[in-house]
Amino acid sequence: MRRFVTALSGLACATIALAGPAAAYEIDPLTRQPLSDVLTVRVRAQPVPTANAALPAADPLQQSPAAAVPQATAIGRETVPYSGPHAPGTIVVSTAERRLYLVLPGGEAMRYGVGVGRPGFTWGGTQTVTMKREWPDWRPPAEMLRRRPDLPRYMKGGIENPLGSRAMYLGNTIYRIHGSNEPETIGTAVSSGCIRMTNEDVADLYTRVKVGTRVIVQR
Rank of each mutant, 00 (worst) to 15 (best):
G212C: 03
R176G: 03
Q71G: 01
G125Q: 03
V116Y: 06
S192R: 02
N172C: 00
M155D: 01
A203Y: 02
G89H: 10
P56Y: 10
M131K: 15
M110Y: 01
A142R: 14
A51F: 03
E182G: 00
A14Y: 12
D28I: 03
G158T: 10
I216S: 01
T15E: 14
Y82S: 05
Y82K: 07
T130W: 02
A203C: 03
G117S: 10
S165G: 12
T6F: 00
V43S: 04
P141R: 11
T188M: 09
N52Q: 13
R219M: 10
L163N: 11
S83P: 00
P149L: 08
G212I: 06
W135H: 06
R219N: 10
R196W: 02
V190T: 11
F4G: 05
T31E: 15
V92R: 11
G187T: 13
G193L: 12
V93I: 15
Q62G: 03
S64H: 07
L100Y: 00
T130C: 04
I216T: 02
Q218F: 00
P149Q: 05
R77E: 13
Y169K: 08
M110D: 10
A12M: 10
G106M: 13
A23K: 11
L30F: 14
S165Y: 12
K132R: 14
P140I: 11
G158P: 08
T90C: 07
I216M: 01
P49A: 03
D37Y: 00
I16F: 07
E143C: 01
N199S: 07
S165Q: 14
P29I: 13
P183N: 08
T50N: 13
V41C: 14
G84Q: 11
I195D: 02
S165W: 07
R133M: 15
N199F: 03
E200N: 03
G20F: 02
L205T: 02
M197T: 09
